[in-house]
Design a protein around this nucleic acid. Structure first.
Length: 500
DNA sequence: TGGACAGGTC
């Protein structure tokens, strides 16, 4: 063989011949064999590449067509040689026949993470998004894993602090739905950082939140096995997991849920853990969902008997239950009572009333309560309060009140948000107030809120049907200026007949 | 300080 490299014979002879030819005579290899040729390319790179060489002269080739698999495999073989791998990847991206996919990006991001080049890795994540290879779950898994591996280098302190950092990470992973990764991190690091009831609670909660009872119970069992006693928070997590997702219809399901919850209460007491406000609030929420106002009220009494002060959450559940059963008067009395007990009602509490008033089309009561809330503090209403009210008054055609609420929303700084604009614009469209609808549509875009496709479609059809082509064109220009598109299939389908 | 509870929509 006339080549200068000691190519192992098992490699593809076609490629061997190709690499050993002079660069002045470029050839195109029709098909490369991923596994063998990946070995070959990586060997050549490792032996010949240096930072002062161009990748082409290292590889002695032009126009090579890298299949996605060949690219992955070569990168994997260069895993321990981050600089060469990164140079190769950067070169591959410039090749006309090579379009790196998300997997290739993930491999390189992992390689960069391994050598702590997190800034470069992050640039690649951004680039992925820009070139339409959306960074996915795996991308972040890879990064998270690498970040965690390095944490030990930066965090100096007691084992206790390491454990607390692990809990924070495990909790964050669970909250974002990466329970599997969280579990993996926990299993790998528990010997190093130690365990306590907090980290177990976080994991049990995480598994319940993704509705995996088996795994949740497994960790509960493991916790007791290693001699860590569950505390109130652990039990509350279990209670919440059991109650939250379960269907309460028909009646037997509701009763079974309550029985199960009561059994947890008993188990708690057997283990010397007293149920607290949160435990009771979880059960109150079950009663509220099942529309059991009398049971809710009984439970409030039971709490007081046990010497537990109901919290805003407890009261709000009962208020919601009463309101949804039409017992608004009693709900109002309960709000008085909670205020008397030094528990301030929150926006969520008031929203229960507004929803009931909206159902009854009771504008006067809604307005009176809203003014009362404003009197307490303009920051008390939540975005949701505003949106319930805007929706209600716009339907009742009380536009002067809508205006008042709209202004308050702006003054409070919370905003109108996507929901507020959508509600208002759709209502204006229903009333054939196309120009006003259009103004709000443009306003929201200017604020950086992207309208929903349906809003655009409603507005578009209305403008065409009412022959308001000039307004329509203005709107379209605005969309073009902001580079907003609502999908080509729609525009092709609907716009063609109107193009001249 | 960093683990749990009041829900929104149709």
């Amino acid at each position: 063989m006339s080549c200068s490299l000691p190519f192992p014979t098992r490699h593809s002879t076609r490629l061997t011949r190709f690499f050993s030819s002079t660069p002045s005579k470029p050839q195109l290899i029709p098909s490369l064999q991923p596994s063998n040729d990946a070995d070959l390319i990586s060997q050549i790179l490792l032996q010949h590449h240096n930072p002062f060489h161009s990748m082409e002269s290292s590889l002695q080739l032009h126009g090579i067509s890298l299949s996605p698999t060949l690219l992955h495999q070569t990168l994997l073989r260069l895993h321990s040689f981050s600089k060469v791998a990164f140079a190769f990847f950067s070169w591959a991206k410039t090749q006309p026949f090579c379009v790196p996919d998300a997997v290739a990006y993930n491999i390189v991001i992992d390689i960069l993470g391994k050598v702590k080049q997190f800034d470069v890795a992050w640039q690649l994540v951004v680039e992925m998004d820009q070139v339409g290879r959306r960074p996915g779950r795996n991308t972040f898994r890879v990064l998270i894993r690498r970040v965690f591996e390095d944490m030990g280098c930066f965090v100096v302190g007691e084992d206790d602090e390491g454990c607390s950092d692990m809990i924070y990470l495990v909790d964050t992973l669970c909250k974002y739905g990466y329970v599997k990764v969280a579990t993996e991190v926990f299993n790998r690091k528990k010997m190093e950082f130690g365990v306590n009831e907090r980290v177990y609670t976080v994991l049990i909660d995480g598994w319940w939140k993704v509705n995996n009872r088996k795994m949740a119970e497994r960790f509960f069992g493991e916790m007791i096995e290693v001699g860590i006693e569950p505390n109130v928070v652990t039990y509350n997590v279990v209670l919440n997991g059991m109650c939250r997702r379960r269907s309460l219809h028909p009646e037997e399901r509701f009763e079974r849920t309550v029985q199960d919850a009561r059994r947890v209460f008993e188990e708690m007491r057997d283990r010397g853990v007293e149920p607290d406000v949160t435990s009771y609030s979880i059960l109150l929420h079950v009663y509220s969902r099942a529309h059991k106002p009398d049971l809710s009220l009984d439970m409030l009494k039971e709490m007081r008997r046990e010497g537990i002060c109901p919290s805003v959450a407890s009261y709000t559940s009962v208020v919601k239950c009463l309101c949804s059963c039409g017992r608004v008067k009693e709900a109002e009395e309960l709000v008085e009572e909670m205020a008397g007990n030094g528990v301030a009602p929150s926006a969520v509490t008031y929203n229960c009333f507004f929803k009931e008033y909206r159902g009854r089309k009771d504008a006067d009561s809604a307005l009176a309560l809203y003014r009362k809330m404003k009197g307490i503090s303009l920051s008390l209403p939540s975005m949701h309060t505003y949106n319930i009210l805007v929706g209600m008054f716009v339907k009742l055609n009380r536009m002067e009140i809508v205006e008042e609420i709209w202004d308050d929303m702006k003054v409070s700084g919370a905003g109108p948000d996507l929901d507020s604009y959508t509600l208002l614009i759709h209502a204006l469209c229903e009333k054939d107030k196309w120009k006003e609808a259009c103004q709000f549509f443009v306003e929201m875009i200017e604020k950086g809120i992207l309208p929903q496709k349906v809003t655009f479609e409603t507005l578009y059809k209305g403008l065409i049907q009412s022959d308001m082509l000039r307004t329509w064109r203005r709107l379209k220009k605005k969309l073009e200026e902001e580079s907003i598109s609502f999908g080509s299939e729609f525009e092709q389908y609907h716009l063609k007949p109107y193009r001249r």
